[in-house]
């Protein structure tokens, strides 16, 4: 895998336009879905994915094969999404305090329906704070291990676990029957 990534990166660096398109085709679908869920808008997601691939094109020389090209692209993507959300959050001063401070009594029996509606789940994910949303999307939706989530987000594995736990708790509160 790493060898194939290094070869593809080398072809991209050499100015092979087909190689860069191949890179895009390999990863754009998953990245686009992730960005739409991170920022909540397909129009913003288009702009951000475009910026990510342009940044990747400029900085491919820095890719040494320490991680897979996919993980490297996810890292660029999540950095860009979190920057975007930080800017937007500062502008809108949108508070998530009511959600963060929620202190509902701990249920002693399952409260989430066994068949969760996708639409309800999408809405609930969109309401998560950016940090736990990022970790949850990477781990539970994209299927990355905590070690990979940590690498992508530049945090420790323990932080990844903690963020996913917080996300699941908040989703549980939002998806109660």
């Amino acid at each position: 895998m790493r060898t194939a990534d290094l070869e593809l990166a080398a072809r991209c660096r050499a100015g092979d336009a087909d190689a860069f398109e191949e890179l895009y085709r390999q990863h754009a679908r998953r990245l686009f879905s992730l960005v739409v869920r991170m920022v909540g808008s397909t129009a913003d997601a288009e702009d951000l994915v475009q910026e990510v691939f342009l940044q990747a094109h400029r900085t491919l020389a820095g890719f040494r094969g320490d991680s897979t090209l996919g993980t490297w692209l996810y890292r660029l993507t999540m950095n860009r999404c979190l920057d975007h959300l930080r800017g937007r959050q500062a502008k809108m001063s949108r508070a998530t305090a009511s959600l963060d401070d929620e202190d509902a009594a701990e249920p002693m029996a399952p409260v989430v329906p066994s068949a969760i509606s996708r639409m309800d789940l999408e809405k609930a994910i969109a309401a998560l704070p950016p940090g736990s949303r990022a970790a949850f999307l990477l781990h539970d939706v994209e299927g990355f291990e905590h070690q990979e989530v940590a690498e992508i987000l530049g945090v420790s594995e323990g932080t990844s676990k903690s963020q996913v736990h917080k996300a699941r708790l908040k989703l549980r509160a939002m998806l109660r029957r």
Partner: peptide
């Protein structure tokens, strides 16, 4: 339940 539902969410095509 949440993890199972999350893993089946649809991809959104660019």
């Amino acid at each position: 339940s949440i993890r199972g539902a999350a893993s089946t969410l649809d991809e959104q095509l660019p």
